[in-house]
Amino acid sequence: MTALPDAAEPAVQAAGPAEETPSSRGMLRYALSKAGGALFSIAMVVIGTFFVFRLLPGDPVRNLAQGRNMTPEQLDLERHRLGLDQSLINQFFDFVGDTLRLDLGTSYEYKRPVLDLIGERLGPTLLLAGTGLVIAVSLGLWQGIHAGWRHGSRFDRFSTGTSLVLWSVPTFWLGLLLMMVFGVGIGPIPGLLPFRGSESIDAPDGFAYVLDVAAHMVLPCLTLVAVVYAQYLLVMRSSLLEEVSQDYITVARAKGLRDDDVRRRHAVPNALLPTVTLVFMRIGFVVGGAVTVETIFTWPGLGQLFYEAVSVPDFTLMQGTFLLITVSVIVMNTLADVVYHMIDPRVRSA
């Protein structure tokens, strides 16, 4: 809707009750209280993480020693080096202190700081999962809007049906299928796209490098998008259907607006609100990468790192990636609350 120029009218403004002119101070207070809640959640996660990983069965030192001949003395020495010979309480305070200093410990397997490992893998993951998210959200919302607006139409049945089928397909199966068809090639048809890693071994420089990485991204990205976009479509579709039956949509039609304008100006902005929460939650999970997709396509991201950490098992590495994912989900949820508060006037005054 066309916004009217908001000329300053201090006298008239003052006539309105104070609580009905949303103040930036109220907004700040709301954001701070949400941030406080988020900090508390993060603290609980840090504490929980420590104990959960100590409760896991198996002796990390014995796991590390697998296949090697070590004397009990050597094992004790190793235990001492890792700080595992200390009492649980001491270990706990060490862990909390280290975490506060952003020291996530040293990986058992890689013998390198966990933070460095995460740093290396973060880029490729953000690239793959981030691109996947943007495409899935745009595709899902767009199809959801059109399916909901003309619900029961051929487009609705086709797009909703297709997305549901893809959603039900196991990720690894679809990934392998795409890899076979487009990566390896079937019969006389050669493989068209690379499917291992994020770049070629002899990767060129400059723009050609960008193209090389993009080519490597196609298949994992396609898999990622195909299996998740249905949820955006379905949320958007049902949310739009709910709005369309409201009286104010009929009012907008009665005002003489074009069908497209009724949809764009009235139905969609309202229907988008519930999807905001969903999208922000998904952004939170982006740093977790896509464990399955990254593993299948050997994409050097966090998901793959997490997978490796679990299969060793490498406790500090698992602990570190686990913390990273939970913290990012909590942060994004908090942001979702704040953004929702900003865009929905009804929540603002509640």
Binding site: T2, L4, D247, Y248, V251, K255
Partner: peptide, 15 residues
């Protein structure tokens, strides 16, 4: 529900 819940009423009257 005759009014759009997330639009200012001035804008709705002017529309």
């Amino acid at each position: 529900h005759g009014l759009n819940p997330v639009r200012k009423i001035g804008d709705q009257i002017a529309e």
